[in-house]
Nucleic acid binder design. Sequence first.
RNA 1: CGGGGCGUAGCGCAGCUUGGUAGCGCGCAUCGUUCGGGUCGAUGAGGUCGGUGGUUCAAAUCCACUCGCCCCGACCA
Length: 593
Amino acid sequence: MRMSRMFFQTLREVPADADTVSHQLMLRAGMIHQIAAGIFDILPLAQRIKHKIEDIIREEMDAIGGQEVTLPMVHPAEIWQRSRRWYEIGSDMARLKDRNGRDMCLGMTHEEIMAELAAKFISSYRQLPVMLYQIQTKFRDEPRPRAGLIRVREFTMKDAYTFDRDEAGINAYYPKLYQAYFNIFDRCGLDTVAVASDTGMMGGSMAHEFMALTGIGEDTLVICDACGYSANRQVAAFRKPAPPTEAPLPLEEVATPHVETIAALAAFLGIPESQTAKAIFQIATVEGPDGQPKDQFVFAVVRGDMELNETKLTNAIKARRLRPAVTEEILAIGATPGYGSPIGIDRSQVLLLVDDLVAASPNLVAGANREGYHLRNTNYGRDYTADRVLDLVAASDGDGCPTCGAPLRTVRGVEVGNIFKLGTRYSIAMGATYLDENGESKPIVMGSYGIGPGRLMAVLAEVLNDENGLKWPITVAPYQVALISLATDKTPEVAAAAERIYADLVDAGVEVIYDDRNERAGVKFNDADLIGIPIRLTVGGKGLQRGVVEMKLRRNGETAEFAVDTLVDDVWDLIADEHERIQARVVERVLAE
RNA sequence: CGGGGCGUAGCGCAGCUUGGUAGCGCGCAUCGUUCGGGUCGAUGAGGUCGGUGGUUCAAAUCCACUCGCCCCGACCA
């Protein structure tokens, strides 16, 4: 590709709207263009990167039996109504009507469509297991797109689905996906960790997220450096500290004017936050006795120094939704915002959940449900009892690892892929069944497995860069080689040599971008660095006099000289070396269950 | 949806407080100059000042409404 013909423009200045490195650099490199919140044009340079990532994904999926398909992006409502997700999913699903007024939606995922397909084509155990996948556009009307391509509304996703006859079947398939996912990320040059995750709106029994560790991540992970335990903070277990042992003291009301936060309370009374209990008021949408959704006031109590884990709470009560209660709702159950506690409230309207550590801790300070007052020495069992006592809090830095007890560490990460054991929810809804050896009809057991190639590209940009620009690994780089001609009007022999070298490289099958523009050397070097081409070749008068072109590796700045006579072979050797380097990252991983 | 910020040329910004027919840098075009890490000079093209309504002799500027974008939170395979 001649740079003079390439559809792109690099920017010196950083567009004001971009505040993550990947967004800034991809804009500056002329790779993407935004046309609405979370909706982007992918320009030629980025398109090539995305294609390479997708090809790696294809190879790995095919290697474990995947068969590629393309499913539609516009779906009839009826299919989504059969799984009930038409009703359960809110505004994230973009809905529309066709010309006949029929309800349709834009596909945000394809479990239903895949299960429908399986229902149509799978009838015997002899056809199982099977895996189908596609690389296709999804639309999710995210409430808040952010960080360039990291979180967008329209995006490409590789979604794969396995169909097995039973749990044992998917238990055998799942580790293959686990390994394939690591292969994909490793081959793209991205470090990831797999963490156990919440199964969320997808339902299912087991799930892993593949996370790239970066400060811009929207997820918090909990990691144990000692034993390797890792989990999304939403589901992370940990060892709670032992509660102090002391005899219960008499309940005592104490005036605490204008002390409405745990921090203020601890400071006011001169006690550690761990000797307080805090009340969190939530409204959960749960299934009522009649099967209809209803709002339930949930009163959660956790120790003052700890944080409520809303995922644990949601899962514990099987809530469909959870939102903070508003002041009127809190007052209506007899509690006082800022001074709340389970003592003295109207229990008939409330589901009271108490963290197990609170229940075991004596003499905690809690609110008096009276403006300006708290209670000293509240004791679970004596002063109040809960509907349920359970683990409700989120793991934090320094908490004990659930497997080995060493201190846990929290880090931020971006989810670049996930794998799910779905179970039979969608196959039952869609009637995807098979006959076993005994002629018995059984639901197919499904798994679903996603990767966002666009997000993966953005995460690579986020992680692999320096002050001069991007640094793509050879496996995904838009071009392997940037050939820079330093010819001027006065050095046509340099131009001729560069042209010849370009032609030779192209003939040899090297992916080369040739900077034939009439620009100064600095402009060309800077653009090559910004775009992040892994291998840079410079053809200049100085080198040519000695019969060499100069090579510089973008990744580490290493330089070498290649003789013009052997250039093509030298370049191929270097490309092979770079691939070898990446391949060396691919290792066998064992799924710890 | 709650909180905050911003909409003026492709990009980055000034002008707005104190209304008077829109400017700078980069980029783009042409010419010359220079040529191994974003040369220098000249000329030029390019703007419904996000939109609508209002106030006024006069609105980028003041007022109201509205749309869009970004950030934090909520939410999220």
